[in-house]
Structures are given as structure tokens and as C-alpha cells.
Nucleic acid binder design. Structure first.
Lengths: 335, 335
DNA sequence: CTGAAAGCGCTAACAT
DNA sequence: ATGTTAGCGCTTTCAG
């Protein structure tokens, strides 16, 4: 069933049918419009948008690449993206890169081939294949970075938070409540956010004149298991620890569990500070003090920026920095 | 940059170029193939798959509709779907319906118009618009149901677990460990899984000759907040409660939090049983006893079934029932 | 092994 | 207000 069939059945030309299925306001009388609409309804014709896309040169589709939807940080962000996309008639391709550069490139390539109208990426780091990088740029497909800056796409706008400042405020809270021996359980080494958060940690120590000890720093996946495993080793090595700054709430969940199993009271003996404020952080035992990012909003804003870019609005080309807040709960002492 | 440009630059016909970009094994000499490949690489040509899709009548795209990716049950399932899709060269459209029939229909329609090769849906219930239902069927696009049966698409295959049997085994465990006054905090009324789990609950009570009390049953969203709020009211009304069967782990998280705030020891005074075994359930305090569903695997298998259907394999038309297991942890007493 | 040509279903001028 | 027609970029016979 094609537009030709409808045209023939309705006794009009396909141009007319095209006008009505595209809700083209003028160019067709109300009467014929109704007649065609009824016919379409009756025979169950569904326009083929992929055929239309080739002439229109737009697919009403956007692509999103994230490391892993199973990481509790991402669902909210993805939802923000999807809501904005759908409100504007776009459908969303979702891809999980596992922070693997090869997968990321493979998906990027698929997006280019499928002619998405825009690309959103929470990048894993740097691209290896320069030709793909060039292709993305020369394709002219708008792209906005989400949450993490890219060493390759330095010219692309993005939506971020000030990770250093955010970490600084969190660690300062730890210090203000009497902590001195603060472990940093970071995310993966080399990842943008990890580095920025470490800078904030160091800045807070420096200002409080607490010596920086590199043994207190570890790197690992942004996962519960990674937090859990690291705590067990590290606490044994540094029993003087009085606080742990987890580079993400997912890591903090593992930290809390490990501490509970070790019978170490939180925050009695060690305070625990998270980062992100995922929905779950208020349901943990103890509830988690954390540096809140506007996760859903970041996704939504990034999508909105992308749509602006697609629509040719120069506003879309600017990066945006959203603000964070410290959410104090039970896992750290109060002043 | 189109296939014509490449053909011209290479001094061959576009048919030849088409053969090489489609990795068509035969029909072109190794020599020209190499030459064209190099040229493509050099100029950065990216084939336009949407143009190809119109003649091929396939888009290498599948659509997935779920209620809400922010519900912690779904990320794992989506990941299972995505992994299978990507392994087979398919890209995934993700849509969140909020269990809203109108959104579900809107997305279904978008899938039809965009000519996805297959549809996967965790449906919210029944379709209202029969014409859309007819369209889905007459479009011939394969569809498989995931986790929840549909009252409309009764003829479509699906991947499920035996929810009744699963709930039965969980509640029986509660009874075996001495519980008698068991609350059921179900999911939304009318949703397929909720109904089946309630049947299992009743069956377990019946076999143990424990009278069924309808006051012990409540319905609500599959969310932490819903669990949290319901417990506070209901425990006050029925202080004799010695166990709570939450219709989902997400609900159980709220239950655990509420109980903790009320200083009710778990499982000392009340046992808590969840359903799903989301990743987090092992990290809760106390760790959650729950009926485990193979969440990732269900997504993966559903996608595989869909691809079988797309490939014309009649095996794909059969529904599949996966097995559940009871995972005993700290939130219930041991025998 | 390669070229030529006829579509695929639709949109967008341009006529009428 | 409607019809006509020339593509869009690619695949696929069918020849050569």
C-alpha cells in the first residue's frame, strides 16, 4: 500500500495525497482532505517516512550513545533526552558503548549511515579513527556532548556541570565536619569527570592545608562492585580513614555495603560522600550525602540544544554548565 | 557526496560501487574493490542507508517500548535487547510509554511509519485504537511481547516468566519460615504481572490453609515511593503483619526504608520479600530475599526471537517461558 | 566482471 | 486547488 494506491483510489494525484499526509495546511480543499483522510483510515495506509526522508534529507531521528544503561546514573539522563526528543517528534536511537572506543565508533558510523538528524554522546574519551572523526564533522550532522568533554570533539558544544567545583564543595563539607583522612574512590582513570573531581578534591585539601596523599587515591569502574571491592582492601591498609569520597553514587553504594559488613559505623567512624544524587541515594542505609547533579535536566537540555542546532539556531552552539548542590543526609556528620 | 560521485571519481558505474559498499562477495574483482574502498576512505564517503532501505524494504532497525527506563527493572532488560540487536547489526529505538496507552500507540505508529524491521513491547495493557492494531498486523512487521501479555495482541509470541508460580514459591517460603499475616503490595491494578503474582500469593495461602484477607492487598505504582507510602499506612492498620510481599524489588526498597524509619526490625518482626532480583537487591540493608527473574536474558531472548521472526524462522512464533528462582538473603528468616 | 536502466515511495517545484 | 514531473540515493535485474 503506497501513496499511489491511495491517490488512485481517491481519484486524485499523489501530490494531493502527499499534501494531506504531511498536514500541509494549504493547498488542498477541506473537502478532499476529509475524503482522503477517511480513505486512508479505512484502508489502513501508513505513510513510508523512510522514502520521504530521502528527499527531505531529515529522518526525525536522533542518536544517543552512553556507556551503559545499567549504570544507575544513565536512566534518568536518557529519559530527559527521550522526553525532549519525543515532544518534538523525534525518535531516539540508544546505544551502549561500554566506554569502548571501538563500539563508540561503530555506533557513530551507524548513525551517520542512517542519517540521524543529530547525535548526543557521553563519550568514553578519544577517538582513534581520525577518518571517522572527519566524517562526523564533514557530514554536518549536529552533535552535542553530554556530561563528559571529549578530547576529539573539542569544537562541539556540550552540557556539563563544573565537576571540580562540585567535588570541591563536597570535600569541603567533609573537612568542615572534622574529617582529615579522606579516601578518594574515583571512577576510571583517564575519564574526564574523574580527573575533574580529583582536582576538586585536591583543591579542598589544599585550602584546608591537609597534605595530599596519593595512596588515598584509587581508580575503578563506576560501579557498585568496584566500590565494594576497593573499600575492603584500602580500609585495611589505612585504618586511620575517617571519610570516603566516592566518585559516583553507584560506587558509594558498594562502599556502604562493605562498611556495613566490616561493622564500621557510618558516619560514626567514617563519613561517606557520593556524587550524582541518583534517585536511590535517599533510600540507602544510611541515606547518602552526595553532590547532586541535575541528571534528568542535563539530558533534557542537551537534547534541546541539539534540536536548536538542527533547527539552525546559533544558540545551540554554546556549551552550557549546570549547577550542582550538596545534599546532606545521614552518611556524613552534621556540623 | 553520493554513490554517483564515487562512481564517477573511480571511473566505474554506480552498480559496481553499490556492490562493494554492501560487501557483496562476488561480482567485482578484488582489484577494483580495493581501489574503490581506498577512494571511499580517502574522500570520506558514507553510504546513505535510508536510500537503500527503500528498495531493500528493511531498515536494520528495531523498536522497543517500555514503561519507563527509570524503573530499575528495565535497564537490564533493555541492555539485553540492545546487545542482541547490535550483535546482529540492528539499531534500537527506545521509547518510554509511562504505561500510557496513548503514548504507546503514538510510538507504535512512529515505528510503523519509520518502517522498523520489528517491534518489541512491554505493553501497558490494551490498545484503544483498533485501527492501529489492525495496521500493526497488516503491516506484517514482526512483534514480540516482553514480560507482560497483551489483551490485544493475543496472537503475538512473547517472552515471559510464570509469574504465578514464581510468586507462589516466594510466598511459600514466607509461610515456611513462620509468617502468617502477609501483606501483598502489588503493582498497578489491571497490569498482567500484578494479577498473576496475586494468584500465586493466593495459591500459597490456600495450600497452607491461611485465610485470604482482601484488606492485606494493595495496588500501586512499581516504584520506591509507592512502596514507602503504602507501608506507613498499612502497618498502622494491621500491626499484626509479619511479612510483606512486594510486587517488585523497586517497591521493596521503599518498604525497607519505611520499616527502618518505623524501627521495625527486618526480618525480626516482619520479613520482606521482593520480586525481580534487580542488581541492587544484594546491596540493600538488609539484603533482599527475592524471586529472581532472568531480566537481561529475557530482553536478549526476546530480541533473538524477534530477529528469528524477521528472518522468517518459524521458531520465532513460539512464546517462551523462562524460569525463576528464589534468592534467599537477609530480609526473610531462614528455616 | 561491469555497465545501463528501471524502479523503490515520496516530495517539491512548476504547471494548469 | 490539484495534477505532472523530475528527482532523492540506492539496489537490482538484465545485458554485454
Amino acid at each position: 500500500m503506497t501513496i499511489n494506491d491511495i491517490a488512485r483510489m481517491a481519484g486524485v494525484s499523489k501530490g494531493t495525497v502527499s499534501r494531506v499526509i504531511n498536514h500541509n495546511p494549504q493547498g488542498v480543499s477541506e473537502q478532499t482532505r476529509q475524503r482522503i483522510l477517511e480513505l486512508i483510515e479505512e484502508v489502513g495506509y501508513i505513510p513510508n517516512r523512510v522514502a520521504g526522508s530521502i528527499t527531505l534529507a531529515r529522518t526525525k531521528t536522533i542518536g544517543l550513545i552512553i556507556p551503559d544503561i545499567q549504570n544507575m546514573f544513565f536512566p534518568q539522563m536518557v529519559r530527559g533526552v527521550e522526553d525532549c526528543a519525543m515532544e518534538n517528534g523525534y525518535t531516539l536511537f540508544l546505544c551502549n558503548s561500554d566506554s569502548n572506543i571501538h563500539k563508540e565508533q561503530q555506533y557513530l558510523r551507524a548513525f551517520l549511515e542512517k542519517r540521524v538528524d543529530g547525535i548526543l554522546v557521553n563519550t568514553c574519551g578519544e577517538l582513534e579513527d581520525r577518518s571517522l572523526y572527519r566524517s562526523v564533522c564533514q557530514s554536518g550532522i549536529p552533535m552535542v556532548l553530554l556530561d563528559r568533554k571529549s578530547r576529539d570533539f573539542t569544537d562541539k558544544p556540550g552540557v556539563y556541570v563544573d565537576n571540580q567545583e562540585a567535588a570541591y564543595s563536597g570535600v569541603t563539607h567533609l573537612i568542615d565536619t572534622g574529617c582529615r583522612k579522606i579516601l578518594f574512590l574515583g571512577g576510571p582513570k583517564g575519564v574526564y569527570t574523574t580527573g575533574e573531581r580529583l582536582k576538586g578534591y585536591r583543591q579542598a585539601l589544599r585550602e584546608a592545608e591537609i597534605p595530599f596523599q596519593k595512596e588515598y587515591i584509587t581508580y575503578g569502574a563506576y560501579s557498585t562492585a568496584s566500590g565494594y571491592e576497593r573499600v575492603r582492601h584500602i580500609i585495611e591498609a589505612y585504618p586511620e580513614t575517617d571519610a570516603i569520597f566516592a566518585g559516583a553514587d553507584t560506587i558509594a553504594i558498594g562502599v556502604l555495603r562493605a562498611l556495613r559488613e566490616l561493622n564500621i559505623p557510618v558516619p560514626g567512624q567514617v563519613s561517606v560522600l557520593g556524587f550524582d544524587n541518583i534517585m536511590l541515594s535517599a533510600d540507602l542505609t544510611p541515606t547518602l550525602t552526595t553532590v547532586a547533579q541535575p541528571i534528568y535536566e542535563m539530558g533534557y537540555r542537551a537534547a534541546r540544544k541539539l534540536l536548536a542546532l538542527i533547527g539552525g539556531d546559533p544558540e545551540g552552539a554554546k556549551s552550557e554548565c549546570m549547577s550542582t548542590t550538596l545534599v546532606q543526609r545521614e552518611s556524613t556528620r552534621s556540623r
